[in-house]
Design a protein around this nucleic acid. Structure first.
Length: 323
DNA sequence: CTCGTTTCTCATGTTTCACG
DNA sequence: CGTGAAACATGAGAAACGAG
């Protein structure tokens, strides 16, 4: 068939995006957001790639870019890179900054390489300009606000708490399921991950499917559902406590990491490399972190000389054992 | 030449919508 | 209401390309 040879041809002549095309694509994305194409979840409404294709073809008549795979793939890449940068600039990372003039990540090479080990999507962004970051923040920002993810989840749990209190005041137990409330059961759940929970064989496209029961059946059914609701509510309560404490703790440690780096930078006599090394050593060890905050940091210069020695001797040992 | 990065293709699963 | 088509999301992997 011609399709295969055409396919091969496409593979040979890999499409290169020009900066102008990138710019128009981002423009198009912003336009779609303005026009309400953004769906509530982490996605756009159906047909958005076609709309983008049309927009690009208006700007560049005769352009060969197609909605699939070119635009789809490019948007995917933008999203991945944007998320990676957002992560680096968020509270979960320390030592990273944003060079607004050059539109690129500002970070020590060593810190960056360490980060890439746990965040593979960040690979390739070192010293690479990402000129559309601000625009993409408008496009993807509200979905993938990685920098504020802990706050979002804490907000979410607080919101759930409010809803729970409200429903408790209105109807006794947190989640009560009589016949009239049966439909509300699902509406109380959407903040929790409901994806992939549809039973095999059920129709996922009709989540609001309602089933009519006779009175006896509905009584026992509602009793069962009430019990299920209680179990669910207790489970949610426990999860809330666990999540809240986890994320509050995570946010706290992230704040401390940021504080440590900025404090180290202010200490005179420490080179950039030493700041990086000291930061890594301290943040790696919770005991050192505690000591750092509880006993002040005037000892750091003296301590660092000792650490320097230790590193020196370790590397000497390594050289000796290697040779 | 090797390795890492980028771009693209393909497969699979999910969601939405139109139609009978 | 059930079904099927269309569109989208996501992940794995292949191929091209560039830097060291």
């Amino acid at each position: 068939m011609d399709g295969s040879s055409e396919n091969q041809n496409v593979r040979i002549t890999k499409r290169q995006w020009t900066p102008e095309e990138d710019g128009v694509l981002v423009e198009g994305l912003l336009k779609l957001v303005d026009e309400g194409w953004k769906a509530d979840a982490n996605s756009f409404k159906p047909g958005y790639t076609k709309a983008l294709e049309k927009y690009i073809h208006n700007k560049f008549p005769g352009c060969t870019l197609k909605a699939t795979p070119h635009i789809e793939s490019r948007v995917k890449l933008f999203k991945r890179q944007y998320s990676a940068i957002k992560d680096m600039l968020g509270p979960g990372a320390s030592g990273f900054g944003w060079n607004d003039a050059k539109k690129m990540i500002k970070v020590e090479k060593e810190i960056y390489h360490q980060w890439c080990k746990s965040h593979p999507t960040a690979v390739g962004l070192y010293k690479k300009p990402f000129p559309h970051y601000d625009s993409l923040d408008t496009v993807f920002g509200k979905d993938k606000a990685a920098g504020t993810v802990t706050e979002d989840i804490i907000d979410m749990t607080i919101e759930m708490e409010k809803e729970n209190v409200q429903s408790t005041q209105e109807g006794g137990s947190g989640i009560s399921l009589n016949d009239d409330d049966a439909e509300n059961f699902e509406s109380q759940m959407p903040e929790t991950p409901t994806a992939n929970t549809t039973a095999p064989g059920s129709n996922p496209s009709n989540p609001a499917t309602t089933v009519k029961y006779n009175d006896d059946a509905s009584d026992s059914m509602s009793n069962s559902l009430n019990k299920l609701g209680e179990i669910y509510a207790n489970g949610i309560e426990n999860m809330k406590q666990v999540f809240t404490s986890c994320f509050v703790h995570e946010k706290h440690t992230a704040d401390r990491r940021n504080q440590i780096v900025s404090i180290l930078k202010e200490i005179e006599g420490l080179s950039d490399a030493e700041v990086v090394m000291a930061g890594m050593l301290i943040t790696k060890d919770n005991n050192l972190c505690d000591y750092f905050f509880h006993n002040g940091y005037s000892w750091i210069e003296e301590a660092f000389i000792l650490v320097d020695f230790a590193i020196f001797f370790n590397s000497e040992d390594g050289d000796r054992t290697d040779s």
